[in-house]
Simulated assay, not measured.
Amino acid sequence: MAGTTTQCVYCGSDVSCHDPVFVEEAADGERVSVGGFCNYACLSAYIEDEELTTGASCEWSPT
């Protein structure tokens, strides 16, 4: 794909200039692309900024 760039979801940089990480999620049983990130640092910052881990824990009961 000459001339095609993919921008980082977090910072907007061209991911082909970095060591990119691509993320997919399941929606209605189908894989859907979330997008690409320059590296794990941008992915980590995106997760933190979007508060994607809030409320995302296993249920646990001491009993």
Rank of each mutant, 00 (worst) to 15 (best):
V34D: 00
E48H: 10
E59M: 10
E59T: 15
V15S: 04
E50Y: 07
D19F: 02
P20M: 07
S44F: 03
S13G: 04
E24I: 09
H18E: 05
G3L: 10
V21Y: 03
P62L: 01
S33N: 12
V23Q: 04
N39T: 00
G12L: 01
F22I: 08
S13W: 04
D19W: 02
E50C: 07
G3I: 01
R31N: 14
G3Q: 07
A26T: 12
F22R: 04
I47H: 04
A2T: 05
G29I: 01
V15W: 04
T6C: 08
V15M: 03
L43N: 03
T54H: 13
G29M: 04
A41Y: 07
T53V: 13
R31E: 15
V23C: 02
S16F: 11
S13V: 01
C11R: 05
T5M: 07
T63V: 11
Q7K: 13
V34E: 01
T6S: 08
S61Y: 08
A26Y: 09
C42D: 08
S57C: 15
A27Y: 15
V21S: 03
E24P: 07
A27G: 11
H18C: 06
D28R: 12
L43I: 00
G3W: 04
C58I: 14
S57P: 09
I47T: 08
H18P: 00
I47E: 05
V32E: 06
F22D: 07
L43C: 07
L52E: 09
E30K: 15
D19E: 10
C11W: 05
C17Y: 09
S13F: 07
N39E: 09
L52Y: 11
D28I: 03
A2Y: 11
N39Y: 02
T4W: 13
S61G: 08
S13C: 09
E48V: 09
A26C: 10
N39L: 06
